[in-house]
């Protein structure tokens, strides 16, 4: 890297708010016409680059589209989770029934079923309470 190149790199850094202006650099610019020209051209390039401003949209529709995808994906995940919960509960119930059948035979199964059907209407009480609490 020659002397001028070093100062030009420094000028570029300064133009973009990096580094510090040194007395050495100032002296060089005052005495080197090419580097003084470089500084002018650098500012010209910056100005031209600033003119480049591609038209933009608000992004409202795209953000909404992405968010719709997010909501759908969350709903899908919830459904999969609910389904897996349901399947695991069903498997457990059938397993319990099978174990009961092995232990007590058909009679045991029928007794448990009867108890279950007698107690079923009682489940209305906690369900109603849950509904009331949800409304609150």
């Amino acid at each position: 890297m020659n002397k001028c190149e070093k100062y030009r790199q420094q000028l570029l850094d300064l133009a973009y708010g990096e580094g510090e202006e040194t007395a050495d650099l100032r002296d060089h610019i005052e005495n080197c016409v090419e580097c003084a020209d470089y500084l002018g051209e650098l500012q010209m390039v910056q100005n031209r680059l600033n003119e480049f401003d591609p038209p933009m949209d608000s992004g409202y529709l795209m953000v909404k589209k992405v968010m719709r995808h997010a909501y759908e994906s969350r709903e899908r995940k919830r459904l999969i989770l609910d389904l897996s919960k349901f399947v695991s509960i069903m498997i457990t119930v059938f397993l319990l029934y099978y174990l009961l059948y092995r232990w007590q035979g058909f009679q045991g199964l029928i007794v448990v079923q009867l108890i279950f059907f007698i107690l079923l209407p009682l489940s209305i009480i906690p369900l109603t309470r849950m509904q009331i609490e949800k409304r609150r």
Binding site: R8, L12, Y16, Y38, E41, L42, M44, V45, R48, L49
Partner: peptide, 13 residues
């Protein structure tokens, strides 16, 4: 960055 600036400077001038 230095390369880019030199490239643009020379092309623009």
């Amino acid at each position: 960055m230095y390369y880019c600036m030199n490239f643009l400077r020379k092309r623009m001038t």
